[in-house]
Design a protein around this nucleic acid. Structure first.
Lengths: 220, 220
DNA sequence: CATCGCATGAAACAAGCGTTTGATACGGTA
DNA sequence: TACCGTATCAAACGCTTGTTTCATGCGATG
């Protein structure tokens, strides 16, 4: 049930697998238009399948969306955890490296085909089903790893200060994932654009590190 | 049309004014449940009026929501402009005071009955009608005043740097307005709560000022 | 070859949506 | 008193929603 591409399809009309195509069509449409704006008929039209296929393969539209969220959230958290582990091994005690591990995955995802998955996750955070929003709010296990790592790297900072700053850092991070760069582009008369992902990542980490009271980064 | 309380109502059943009660009911429901989750029938049920009243007083449900947004956005922008003006007069060249003027209104609104209006505006930003989201994205006039003020206070900072940091600052600000404090509460085992608005405001400004590379605030 | 399970198709379902209709009651004015 | 514009009401409109039904076609199995 977790991977829509496991079962090869035998029917001639579904060369790429109807279940997988429904998954991708729903993800793409939601990431573009939002959860409430996408209907079952929109999904099956994009996927090129009959309307009954959604309920046949996923039970309900609700469960389809939950499944998409589950798959993508797992992927993102796994990537973040891996980057954090690498940072802790290679540069232990470097708070800036920890913040980098927190910010990097989402910034990279925007640059490639995973942009769709990331935007789906962002939608889920604010407009997704109640069940999903509840999970996001209360399942903080993977975030706790980052807090603990930061506490190790910044032993002099009171834990309450550290948690609030971490909270603010998540705000910066999520706002940037929403890709609302048009306002910035207008404000800057077009000079500020998110095209250079490396530079954007550096600016992001710089800002958050500054918020944590860290000194400016050394030239890399 | 702008103030739903202007016309005194003559009908016995509408002692507080049907138009005003519709306005308030819609604002409250949307701020709690989101734009797409609230139906016309929900609104009239909460307002205690007939379902035809919405279309009679506001034309369409769409125009009702646009009107609420227009009224509340005007109020918020006016308050921010006024605080910025005071900051520029009393503490010219103080970047921290400018950031304070940017952050303070929303933080104060959360504390009183305007919390409903603020949450409505936040909803409008992400899930509101396309027309509203377009306005928010492209109407940057009141933001430009803050950018210009910051440029005056931080003459050494390249404009591109300043704009990016301002962009990030808006991220922190909006994230906090969304009032997603439950995750922080869980992460901190309940020790971090947004009850003390003065302290929260100080922490917010501290973090953003740090992101701008400003030195830590002097004790007030 | 007959049979079975899985996948798909067209059509319809009940429920909810925003909006409209036409009737009714009210207070102010001539 | 007769009238008129305003405001409210119950009821219905046409439409879209997510989901279901039942028939059909396919490939694999016996």
């Amino acid at each position: 049930m977790s991977d829509p591409s496991t079962k090869p399809n035998t029917h001639p009309a579904s060369e790429a697998g109807a279940k997988l195509r429904i998954f991708q069509a729903a993800e793409a449409l939601v990431s573009e238009q939002g959860f409430d704006a996408v209907s079952t008929r929109d999904i099956v039209a994009k996927a090129g399948v009959n309307i009954a296929a959604v309920n046949y393969h996923y039970g309900t539209k609700h469960r389809l969306l939950l499944e998409i969220f589950r798959v993508r959230a797992t992927e993102l958290n796994r990537e973040r955890s891996q980057l954090l582990r690498v940072a802790m091994e290679e540069r232990p005690g470097d708070a800036r490296a920890i913040l980098h591990a927190l910010v990097e995955p989402a910034t990279l995802w925007i640059s490639d085909e995973r942009r769709v998955a990331l935007r789906f996750l962002n939608r889920a955070r604010s407009e997704g089903p109640l069940e999903v929003r509840e999970t996001i709010r209360t399942d903080v296990r993977h975030l706790r790893r980052f807090v603990d790592a930061l506490a190790l790297a910044l032993p002099a900072m009171p834990r309450e200060d550290l948690l609030w700053r971490f909270h603010f850092a998540l705000g910066v991070l999520h706002y940037n994932q929403s890709a609302d760069y048009e306002r910035l582009s207008i404000l800057s008369d077009g000079t500020c654009a998110p095209d250079d992902r490396v530079a954007l990542l550096r600016r992001l980490v710089d800002f958050i590190a500054g918020g944590f009271g860290l000194p400016p980064a050394a030239a890399s």
